[in-house]
Amino acid sequence: MSSGKSTLINSMLGKELLHCANEATTATITRIHNKDQQNNFNGSAYNFEPIKSNEKARLKFLDYKSVIDSETLKKWNADNNINYISLTGNIPSIKNSSKHIVLYDSPGPNNSQDNTHQDLTLNLVSDGRYGMIIYVLNATQIGINDDKLFLSQISQVLKTDKHKNIIFILNKADVLDEEKGEDIEIFVRNIASYLKNIGFINPSIIPVSALSALNARKVLNKEPLTRFERNLLQQNIHNLDDDRLIRASYNISDEVKTISLPNTEKKDMSITIKDGLEISKSKINQLIYFSGIPLLENIINYKFQKTTL
């Protein structure tokens, strides 16, 4: 809960589409079917019929929009009758190969006030029709997360199917302060030990800053930024100016790391954002790369190009 799952997916979309909130939202699963070259997102809203053990949930159709925007999804998320949303559109950084790639944004399982969040998410994990789990951890809350039981359940599910992968994302890793002794590589190794003790033999961990990547890509896509986001963007460009997050990734092959290098352009150009703020395009692209998000995207593309689901 509040680890940045929706922000992570929005950063891959390059715009703020999925509803994000610091507090727990309704228990809603959002399915995103990647359709290359589609210009906009369309989608439908559903209600799950009650989930019983060993029985697949059935969907009741409630609404459809031919063009989906963030306000529509915010409204759907606020509707207690809606707990399943299906979207179709282009995820620019993800390419379909022999199979179409579908992402699921699930509720945070650790909402103590609503057990349906964990029930819905565990039902999704146990369903079996997927090839990879992306588990998002919050770097600012490690040690106080109550996700150990849920991770143990996921570990048991994965042991029954060796073809499934899991990647752990350490989001908000850029807030770690090395001058205060918060060394990112030591931090990641400690998380790896924690995950190994739960049952994950050799976990793959990628530290990222999803919000940095989202704001940078919004600039490239000419999406508006608030004053707070503009200030944060400038701060991120100043602070996240090396590949420490990528270097700190754990159990990620050098081959995948290498192909995530940003493209360099012979002629740089400045992008005017607002209020006279100009930032060079190369700095924006570097920020996206240093955020760690392209490394995750390359892993998704790399895995599914080589894997038959």
Rank of each mutant, 00 (worst) to 15 (best):
T116A: 06
T116D: 11
H117W: 05
Q118W: 01
Q118Y: 03
Q118D: 06
Q118A: 13
Q118H: 02
D119I: 13
D119M: 09
D119S: 07
L120D: 02
L120I: 15
L120K: 11
L120S: 06
T121R: 01
T121M: 04
L122N: 09
L122K: 13
L122C: 02
L122R: 09
N123I: 03
N123W: 12
L124W: 02
L124G: 02
L124R: 05
V125G: 02
S126P: 01
D127W: 10
D127S: 15
D127E: 15
G128P: 01
R129P: 01
R129Y: 11
Y130K: 09
Y130H: 12
G131T: 03
G131F: 05
M132Q: 04
I133M: 14
Y135M: 12
Y135T: 11
V136F: 03
V136Q: 04
N138I: 03
N138K: 08
N138E: 14
N138F: 04
N138A: 12
A139H: 03
A139K: 02
T140G: 03
T140L: 14
Q141M: 08
Q141W: 01
G143A: 06
G143E: 04
I144E: 15
I144S: 13
I144A: 08
N145V: 05
D146F: 05
D146R: 12
D146W: 01
D147Y: 04
D147L: 08
D147C: 07
K148G: 05
L149R: 09
L149E: 15
L151K: 07
S152Y: 00
S152A: 04
S152L: 01
S152I: 00
I154W: 00
S155A: 07
Q156N: 12
Q156M: 11
Q156D: 14
L158Y: 04
K159S: 10
K159P: 01
T160C: 02
D161S: 13
D161Y: 05
D161A: 13
K162E: 13
K164V: 08
N165W: 02
N165I: 00
N165E: 14
I166H: 05
I166C: 05
I167M: 10
I167C: 05
I167K: 02
I167Y: 09
I169T: 10
I169R: 09
L170M: 15
N171H: 08
K172E: 05
K172W: 07
K172L: 04
A173S: 15
A173L: 11
D174E: 12
D174Y: 01
V175A: 07
V175T: 14
L176M: 10
L176V: 09
D177T: 08
D177M: 03
E178A: 03
E178R: 09
E178W: 06
